[in-house]
């Protein structure tokens, strides 16, 4: 077990090197002045230039520059945005919780919806249910997310008026940002309109979460169905049935654990796609997150922000992948011995 964790951590080391080396190379790959790309300051004066050149070590070898870059990353000195002049570190880590919040809730939602549906459609006694769920999931799978978002907004926000169209919280409520996670912030704040603010935040969350969850839900339904179907045919399930366990007991003790193992892996694989879709969702619903920031930065050629955003998002995806792998290992004793040479 510790051997496995050690292997995963050493993998983390190599991948962090890859990510940081790529981010560092962007200084040279982006058009424009090298020092501007590094600092984010557009009009550098003569006396400032010398100071910054020393600080960023641009006259020394590439390796020294890279090491200095790592040191700055560690210290939180990520430069400033070319367009606004704000500190990128501050900017990104203020917005990151919003993105994580959206992706996490969508993931939880898709888990809650997809696993029962997947298990149901795998059961042999209801073939009609299987067909219904499968065709619904096919629709969800093939529908472009921005189109789905617009349709849902049109129906539930504009026609019916049940949910707000965009944003994270109504401007009426003023919640001091503590953690960045809006629901937690509301809960720990001591404002008199706590309950109202909380329900308002939930209303704002509803449509973006649903839209973002469409993709992972369908993927999860299909993979759950597939693996449950094969697991329920296994000899140990039949043996467990012959022992006299009820259908629910068989499912709980043997079926689900074995059936959901490949699902965890699928989820790890699709986490990158989920983050990409979260960016699109953020742009559509004016959700103040990292994705929206990154898309704006790309439009405005804000190179320093692009670099910082890429660094954080790729690190996020990678950490999530490792997390899912470790989860997989905890549940599957076979993964612990087969872990060699596997990412």
């Amino acid at each position: 077990m510790f051997n496995y964790l050690y292997r995963k951590t050493s993998l983390l080391l190599f991948i962090s090197f890859g990510i940081t080396a790529f981010a560092f190379s962007l200084y040279y790959l982006f058009p424009g002045d090298l020092l501007t790309n590094m600092t984010g300051i557009t009009n550098i004066t003569e006396e400032n230039y010398q100071f910054l050149a020393d600080k960023y070590k641009i006259n020394e070898s590439i390796i020294t520059q890279y090491l200095a870059f790592l040191e700055r990353l560690y210290q939180g000195d990520w430069g400033v945005s070319i367009n606004t002049g704000d500190s990128i570190y501050q900017l990104i880590f203020n917005l990151l919780p919003a993105t994580i919040e959206l992706a996490l809730y969508a993931l939880i939602y898709s888990f809650i919806v997809a696993i029962p549906f997947g298990v149901l459609s795998a059961s042999e006694s209801h073939p009609w249910l299987d067909k219904g769920i499968l065709s619904l999931s096919l629709i969800g799978f093939s529908m472009p997310i921005f189109w789905l978002a617009l349709i849902i907004t049109f129906i539930f926000s504009i026609s019916l008026g049940w949910f707000p169209t965009s944003g994270r919280l109504s401007l009426v409520y003023d919640i001091p940002p503590e953690t960045g996670f809006i629901l937690i912030d509301i809960l720990i704040s001591d404002v008199p309109y706590k309950a109202e603010a909380f329900s308002d935040a939930l209303e704002h969350l509803a449509i973006p979460t649903f839209v973002l969850a469409a993709y992972p839900t369908t993927v999860l339904i299909r993979s759950t169905r597939q693996s449950m179907k094969s697991v329920m045919q296994k000899s140990y399930i039949k043996a467990a049935r012959a022992k006299g366990l009820s259908t629910w007991q068989v499912l709980k003790r043997h079926g689900l654990r074995n059936g959901l193992l490949p699902v965890i892996q699928t989820l790890g694989i699709h986490f990158g796609t989920l983050i990409t879709l979260a960016m699109v969702t953020e742009v559509i619903f004016a959700w103040p997150g990292l994705g929206a920031l990154l898309v704006d930065a790309i439009h405005q050629r804000d190179f320093t922000t692009i670099q910082g955003g890429l660094l954080v998002i790729s690190a996020l995806v990678f950490l999530a992948t490792i997390l899912f792998d470790v989860l997989y290992m905890i549940f599957d004793p076979l993964a612990r011995i087969r872990g060699h040479g596997k990412i």
Binding site: S235, Y236, K238, A239, A242, H254, R257, N258, P333
Partner: peptide
């Protein structure tokens, strides 16, 4: 099912495949 599971037990030809690999 109740009577059968209480009174009849079965063992199989491939014992390892009849044990749950994850518990």
């Amino acid at each position: 099912k109740k009577i059968i599971s209480e009174n009849i037990a079965m063992i199989y030809q491939e014992p390892r495949r009849c044990l749950d690999p994850t518990s």
